[in-house]
Computed example of a mutant assay.
Amino acid sequence: MAILIDPPLWPAHGTLFSHLVSDASLDELRSFALEQGLPERAFDRDHYDVPQNHYETLVAAGALPVSATELVRRLVCSGLRVPARERPERLDAVLLARWDRLLPGEPQLGRELLARWSEPHRAYHDRAHLLAILSALDTLTGSNEQNPAHRALYLAAWYHDAVYNGVPSDERDSAALAAAQLPGAGLEHAEVGEVVRLVELTIEHSPDSGDTAGQLLCDADLEVLGREAGAYRRYVLSVRREYAHVPDPVFAAGRASILRKLLESESLYSSPLARSLWENQARTNLAAEVERLERPEPA
């Protein structure tokens, strides 16, 4: 693990700025920044912006000076790089536009749901996760939320983690929220019931073989498992931050048990397209994570 800093090349506020990153852990980065007295407002999702007059001090404290190109390369390889499309200033506009296409005339409901997905305690189950599921559904359906046949499916994606407190009742509470809100948005009883049913399927991710909509939603929710290794690593770190209150040994044992059960399944995905796109990479990612979790601590 290393703390990296690039040269002060980036102009802003009458000075030049460097970027301070970790190539392994955001916790490591934040601990180093705290020790050096950097303000929390200088943190921007995957790095700290530090003014030129701090550069030499940070290098003397242990930050490794590298070129801007090398810093970005190692940040990307670490899986900690937050793509531009996942930054809040992009996400809000994109998601609200998608909501408006899905349920025109209900902007307040869309903003309320987006506020839920933006709660500060969320590290993985956040707006980026919501957009990822919507995008995965686009891939799997060959369509988008403007297709009337898929409206319940996309609404279920918006609601499936609308309530998230890290407890077993989250999915059922999310389904109950959909049942309470959607009739007021003009949906018929049958369509509301389908949204509720789909949201509740994400509890176990075990749709029936003939349940096409259920398969699509569950596969989209698990798309993250099949991402390339760096992006998968960022997902793992985000999940760990959501369970920061759980001691490392307890978390590692529980997480490894869950992943081993997934690996024992005949297939992680239900639909043929999802299997062809993500299955092999997902199994590689899960096996590598289990190995890391079960690796003995160095003496």
Rank of each mutant, 00 (worst) to 15 (best):
N280M: 04
S257M: 08
L201K: 00
R197N: 04
R255I: 09
G142W: 13
S209Q: 14
Y164D: 00
G193C: 05
Y159L: 04
Y243H: 13
Q281C: 04
E204N: 09
D219L: 02
W158M: 03
A282K: 02
H205C: 03
A175M: 01
A162Q: 04
S209P: 04
L263G: 07
V163S: 02
D219M: 01
T202A: 02
Y235F: 15
T212M: 07
Q146R: 15
P148D: 01
E289I: 06
A231C: 02
E266T: 11
L198F: 07
D173G: 04
Q281S: 03
N285Y: 06
G230C: 11
R255Q: 14
S143Q: 09
Y235M: 11
S238P: 02
L225D: 00
D208G: 14
S174F: 07
D221C: 09
W278S: 02
A244Y: 08
A175S: 03
A176N: 09
G186Y: 07
R233K: 08
D221H: 05
A180D: 08
A156K: 00
A179W: 02
I258S: 09
L187E: 03
T212S: 10
L217F: 05
D208A: 15
T284D: 10
S271I: 06
S276D: 14
L237H: 11
A282D: 06
V192Y: 02
G210T: 05
Y232V: 01
R227N: 08
L286Y: 13
Q281T: 12
A244Q: 13
Q215C: 09
T284E: 10
A157D: 01
G166M: 06
L273Q: 15
A231N: 02
G166K: 07
D219W: 00
Y243R: 14
A282T: 09
S169G: 10
D211G: 08
V199E: 00
N280V: 08
A256H: 10
R234E: 03
C218W: 00
Y159W: 12
A175L: 01
V199W: 00
A162N: 08
D211L: 05
L273F: 10
R275K: 11
S267H: 13
I203T: 14
A288D: 12
Y269V: 00
Q146H: 07
Y159A: 02
V236N: 01
A179M: 04
S206W: 04
S276L: 13
V163E: 02
D248N: 07
N165W: 11
R255K: 10
A180Y: 05
G254S: 12
G184A: 15
E171D: 10
A229K: 08
L217C: 03
R255P: 06
V239D: 00
Y235H: 14
L259R: 03
E191Q: 15
Y243N: 11
V192H: 03
N165L: 13
V196T: 15
L155N: 00
S267V: 07
P148M: 03
